[in-house]
Amino acid sequence: MDLVVQGLVKAFRLLLSGDPEVLEITLLTLRVSGLATLISLFLGVPLGLYLAVARFRGRELVVGAVNTGMGLPPTVVGLWVSILLWRNGPLGMLGLMYTPTAIVIAQAVIALPVVTGLTMAAVQQLSPKLRLQVLALGASPLQFWWIILREVRFGILAAVMAGLGSVISEVGASMAVGGNVRGYTRVLTTAIVLEVSKGNFDMALALGFVLMVLTYSITYALTIVQQRRRRW
């Protein structure tokens, strides 16, 4: 029990003293996971909209893949991205292995099915006749998608939260493709793993606390927006 207290005390001290390394790790975590979530949004939202509305041969296969991907183990993603990015891999010439960019790529891959799946689910909850009504109102294809997007904005907000939550807390992929290089690719989760294996449980707890506060504040801000319109 005193370990928990120690951890919390240490966490507060770290936060108050503004330890430069912890600050750097925290900012890198925000930058990497925020960017990964943004990328997954730009790809996943259109894909989710499309999958929800489109009819084509093999759609079920794709949807099944998306739904499976929502539970994809980060370690597996890390392995696949590693294989691609390794020096002697197909994308080796880009020199991205063990860089923050590599983590962004891996995390975007992890968040993509989450964002796609939740967007798709949100669209499918709309009345199927709404599609006809929007077209009947005189919407061009672009206007159509914009209106549908607006209709599912709270569902997409949930997708953002779930996507960000899934990447900011994952460790397997960040470790594999980032390498936990100090001052360069060390993010909160990999730092926690390292501190645990070093036996610095109080430091690990403190970093875990920082991670939770961070995740909670972002999610809280998004939740406020989402719940402003609650109907239940």
Binding site: S127, K129, L130, L132, Q133, V134, L135, A136, R150, E151
Partner: peptide, 15 residues
């Protein structure tokens, strides 16, 4: 379509 208008059985209002 932009010279027509349609009303369905459900109101189908936007959020």
């Amino acid at each position: 379509r932009r010279r027509l208008a349609v009303v369905f059985q459900e109101p189908l209002l936007l959020d």
